[in-house]
């Protein structure tokens, strides 16, 4: 029963990871990141259903709320950076942003 949730979460995480690695648009990459975070959130929620001793373990819910708050803050900062980037470079394609090569 619990493995369905976990398989779903893993699929969501992998799709997000693929998006982060394969796409070139910074906005898409940020959206893929959200997918990865939500994949993790599902794991938290799913696992909090598993009995831990006699009681349920509600700690996972707390983490999910925490992750959502941090993700919101991160998106705010990330979008601000994307806008600043676009204003200076007129592009959001990360392949055009390779200035740190060694």
């Amino acid at each position: 029963m619990i493995s369905y949730y976990l398989l779903f979460a893993a699929a969501l995480f992998s799709i997000g990871a693929y998006g982060v690695l394969a796409r070139r648009n910074v906005l898409i990459i940020l959206m893929s990141l959200e997918l990865m975070l939500n994949g993790v959130n599902i794991v938290f929620v799913a696992l909090s259903l598993v009995p831990h001793g006699v009681q349920m373990a509600p700690g996972g819910h707390v983490f999910v709320l925490m992750v959502m708050a941090v993700a919101a803050a991160e998106v705010a900062v990330g979008l601000a950076i994307v806008i600043a980037l676009f204003r200076t470079r007129q592009t959001v394609d990360i392949n055009d942003l390779q200035m740190m090569s060694g």
Binding site: N95, Q98, M100, S101, G102
Partner: peptide, 16 residues
């Protein structure tokens, strides 16, 4: 130094 190409995708791939 040659591994440091500056591509974000390369950095994220190696991280993963």
């Amino acid at each position: 130094r040659h591994t440091q190409v500056g591509a974000v995708s390369a950095a994220t791939t190696s991280t993963l």
